[in-house]
Design a protein around this nucleic acid. Sequence first.
DNA 1: CCGTATAGCTATACAATATAGCTATTCATC
DNA 2: GATGAATAGCTATATTGTATAGCTATACGG
Lengths: 141, 141
Amino acid sequence: MIHDPLEDLPGYALRRVSAAVMAKLAEGLSRLDLRPAESTVLLVIGANPGVTQSEVGRLLGIASANMAPLVARLADRGLIVREAVDGRSQGLTLSDGGRRITVKTRSVVDELESDLLARIPAVERAAFLKVLFALARDQDD
Amino acid sequence: MIHDPLEDLPGYALRRVSAAVMAKLAEGLSRLDLRPAESTVLLVIGANPGVTQSEVGRLLGIASANMAPLVARLADRGLIVREAVDGRSQGLTLSDGGRRITVKTRSVVDELESDLLARIPAVERAAFLKVLFALARDQDD
DNA sequence: CCGTATAGCTATACAATATAGCTATTCATC
DNA sequence: GATGAATAGCTATATTGTATAGCTATACGG
């Protein structure tokens, strides 16, 4: 057996777990023809009708250069509607079709999140989640 | 303030924390002209002289199609040496230059891992790491 | 009014990963 | 020992997420 010099590294463990979760998410979303980044954008717009794409990008940590084609694709598919709020910003709203697909998206996401939670022993669950969310909030800089 | 519908999702938190850690790692490795995936390959070869690239790929979850150009680049740079162990496999070993850069790699990695650990409150640290490593091991399927 | 910041966009590049398909070698089994 | 299956390594190609540079037009503070 070969030795794994990375097995004690929390950063590497985070990377592997995250990659596995993302792979499952991508697979679950594929039947909706949605990519992970698109699904999060839909969820944020659904929860905040009228947000601008720059606000969405800031919340999700997606650069504006990458938001542009992403939002354009969602608009081209008729999932979201863009309405000018001033001369340079557009408020984003889900269309009826967008709402339907967002409901399905949420169920895909929720199922994966449940699977993940189920794999965390109940004893450590609270501590694990507390640290994880704290780290995630921390990262917002 | 806009509402974040993802703030309660552990899977999404994992993704954000992992992305932030990876970004810092990529930045730290950039002065060695190494990419994250290459650095892990070097560390594994350093800890297991003579491993084949397929063994490294299996350990790290890198597909053989992606290992080929990755190992080729490390060999082209003179960081690793390939020696035939049989007609189709090659044992990988660090060259002197590879050993030097791997030492530096380890110090970059160790510093980031220390930073990460330092951000986990001592009270929850053991539980957090236990769950994280269990999830990472789990994922190996 | 004017300088600066911001919104949105294009073009481009890169890293990691994925699939398909290929050759050649090894190995188990008949 | 021959043969079929599995394996090692490789190429080509595509996708996803992300990064940088640079652009236009609008909004806003002094």
